[in-house]
Design a protein around this nucleic acid. Structure first.
Lengths: 185, 185
DNA sequence: TAGCTTCTTGACCATGGAGTCAACTACTGC
DNA sequence: GCAGTAGTTGACTCCATGGTCAAGAAGCTA
């Protein structure tokens, strides 16, 4: 059964509004705000998407998957385990700064959803490989665990959320300190 | 004009209750909870202390000033600019983990109050000196600014709040990574 | 265009917290 | 032990958010 014309129009409008407000304010933006941006009432969103969770599922891919895939690709083109490892972490960290919504996804600070979890797990798996290679080459400290890596990303997420004031340049400079601390002692 | 006997009793009871619940849950614990712990009604707290802000002013010193002073003293007894610098940062970071209330103070994520600000400023001043000495001795990277230092503490506060799950041992181990990143390149 | 079905609306409920105040309670001084 | 005043209470308002649903609006089909 196909949707009625107005309903189809609304679904698309809501999706686009959600992309906008989520990009601007993260995935926890009040639903009323999404509704207002879409020019519909809150009830319509709940009716069409079944709440925030469903709405996120509907936009998460367009919202961040693309960005993460880009990082992975960029890293994959690099040579050397250290460069690859650091470029990945650096890329993720910058993404977290640039896109509050992507940060929310990485932190899973929201209703877990299928596509979202898959995305995260995939990224973690990739990072795990990079870490392993870098440690095998002796360019990253051996006592850094995959859990530490996940944690470093979660940490950065918390930081980005709590300190949205710092300039990108400062943020980036400080990432350098954090990366440095992962080199062998 | 002196307080009536029951009022005096209440003020003391509220103070002690506030110390307890603030220590357990940070300075943002709902006032109702403080009231319940003190065995009085919320209204009494507002009447006696003028809201959360006044209540915090009344307990902040006993709550954290002591701890910070202890760290400063311990650091002061150490030799060597690197040891001093690292012991201070490490001490503050552990305090943030151990005492959510102290963390709240350091992050000033609450109604700013006189004694609180003074405390923070004093601590920052001390840190600034340690940093200067360590950099002069060439044991801490020269491009680390005092603002970075403040930020490192804020960051840690955000982390502690967002990731209360990690064990103290893991937390401590990861502090090691962060400290390492501050050594000269 | 009529009538049926789908959709949307926005007022409504619930939660949880801050903060207020008129009415009640209980010290204290005489 | 009795005013009279200081002190306390807890029900109240207000705000923001998530979430629901009966009634009304709008599109579709014949």
């Amino acid at each position: 059964m196909t949707l009625r014309a107005d309903a189809r129009r609304n679904v698309e409008g809501i999706r686009r509004a959600a992309l906008d407000v989520f990009r601007a304010g993260g995935l926890t933006t009040p639903m009323d705000e999404v509704a207002r941006a879409a020019g519909v009432s809150k009830g319509t969103i709940y009716h069409r998407f079944g709440g925030r969770r469903g709405l996120i599922d509907a936009v998460v891919d367009e919202l961040v998957a693309e960005r993460i895939r880009a990082i992975v690709e960029r890293v994959e083109a690099l040579d050397g385990p250290l460069a690859r490892f650091e470029a990945y972490l650096h890329g993720i960290w910058l993404l977290q700064f640039d896109e509050p919504a992507a940060n929310d996804v990485l932190m899973r600070a929201l209703p877990d959803s299928e596509p979202l979890s898959i995305l995260c797990d995939h990224a973690c798996e990739f990072a795990r490989r990079l870490l392993h290679d870098a440690q095998a080459a002796g360019v990253i400290r051996a006592d850094l665990t995959p859990e530490d890596l996940t944690h470093l990303i979660l940490e950065r997420g918390a930081i980005v959320r709590a300190c949205p004031h710092q300039s990108r340049a400062d943020y980036d400079r400080r990432l350098g300190f954090a990366l440095r601390g992962l080199r062998p002692v």
